[in-house]
């Protein structure tokens, strides 16, 4: 399986009080065609920074890609000029955002906003692009698309707006879609519809989807593989089913215990004490150690991402010294 998008050792730094601090460090992610990779973690774990770095959308003042490669079909996006990068954005790699209410321009019709992308990247005429926009709205299951293309965003409900956003993002048939918490602001029923839609579109078009979320329920519904992030690092990656069945990192385990489930009593939920350390205040050694129930003196050494056995041929890795020791002993 050749990777469509291969992120290697990506480190993005932010300038805080005149010094550069790594917001994400040594992030390795690979995404194949027709695959959904979920990136999970708490707020501040670096999920969104990873996505924004991939498209180089971070503000130029105060943020930089320190190290690493972002290989898209063999081309390193980190080395492209801004002009070349503009051709990639929206065309080869598209992104959808969390807030459907503010992600559309209130002064333009939805049809014109979809048509705009097609006119820029495909050089289509306005008329042809509007026809295509209508077909796209139909494809994302917006009812009565012929009328809807002429309407403004305020005439759309939240779920319909998110569909319109998806139509804009998918207009140029991108190979990779970055979805940054696209369902967080929606009702659960609408959320389910949008997730199903994204899954269907992925299958029909053979896209690779990176799905960023903090909702493990959503992960279970759509992901093929999962990467768990904590304090700017990937702490565990595994196939979706394997991760839920055999979490190897204490953080993943804690996340799963903190997730409400229909088949369990809500009062057995265990919150994770404390919060994600800020990028200027990360502890030496394992970043999760201060919140970890298994922490030992060895955790003062920073762990590496190591393989976990028993995954049955699929790739399962975790960043935990205790786990690495257990693997050695076995």
């Amino acid at each position: 399986m050749t990777a469509l998008l291969d992120i290697r050792g990506l480190t993005t730094e932010f300038r805080v009080n005149g010094r550069w601090h790594a917001a994400i460090q040594d992030v390795d992610l690979s995404l194949a065609a027709n695959e959904t990779l979920a990136v999970v973690g708490e707020s501040g774990s670096g999920k969104s920074v990873t996505a924004l770095s991939t498209l180089r959308l971070l503000p130029q003042a105060g943020a930089r890609i320190g190290r690493g490669e972002i290989l898209f079909e063999g081309r390193d996006l980190a080395k492209l000029s801004e002009r070349q990068m503009a051709k990639v954005r929206g065309n080869d790699i598209a992104m959808i955002f969390q807030e459907p209410m503010t992600s559309l321009n209130p002064t333009m019709t939805v049809g014109d906003q979809i048509a705009e992308v097609l006119m820029i990247h495909r050089g289509m005429s306005h008329g042809a692009a509007l026809n295509e926009a209508r077909d796209l709205l139909d494809e994302v299951r917006v009812p009565d698309p012929a009328r809807r293309v002429t309407e403004y965003p305020h005439q759309f409900s939240g779920g319909m707006r998110q569909r319109a956003m998806i139509a804009i993002a998918l207009a140029c048939r991108p190979k990779v879609l970055l979805a940054d918490e696209p369902t967080t602001a929606l009702d659960v029923t609408v959320q389910h519809q949008v997730l199903t839609l994204l899954d269907d579109l992925k299958r029909e078009r053979g896209m690779g989807v990176i799905f960023i979320t903090h909702n493990l329920g959503v992960v279970a519904q759509i992901a093929d593989r999962v990467a768990v992030m904590y304090a700017g690092e990937i702490v565990e990656t595994a196939d979706c089913t394997r991760l839920f069945a055999n979490p190897a990192h204490p953080y993943t385990e804690a996340l799963l215990r903190a997730m409400p489930r229909v088949d369990r009593r809500a009062d057995t939920l265990e919150p994770i004490p404390g919060s994600v350390p800020s990028i200027t205040g990360r502890p030496a050694g394992c970043y999760f150690a201060p919140r970890c129930g298994y922490a030992r003196p060895e955790c003062g050494h920073h762990p590496v991402l190591g393989p976990i056995s028993g995954a049955g041929g699929s790739d399962h890795q975790a960043r935990c010294i205790l786990r690495a020791k257990a693997e050695e002993a076995a």
């Binding site: 954005r89 321009n105 990247h121």
Partner: peptide
């Protein structure tokens, strides 16, 4: 605003973002 960020994510030129969005 997110629609401006979305515009950048779609590869729009700064001139277009300023003038149209």
């Amino acid at each position: 605003k997110e629609y401006v960020e979305a515009g950048r994510a779609l590869g729009f030129s700064p001139l277009r973002i300023m003038g149209v969005h």
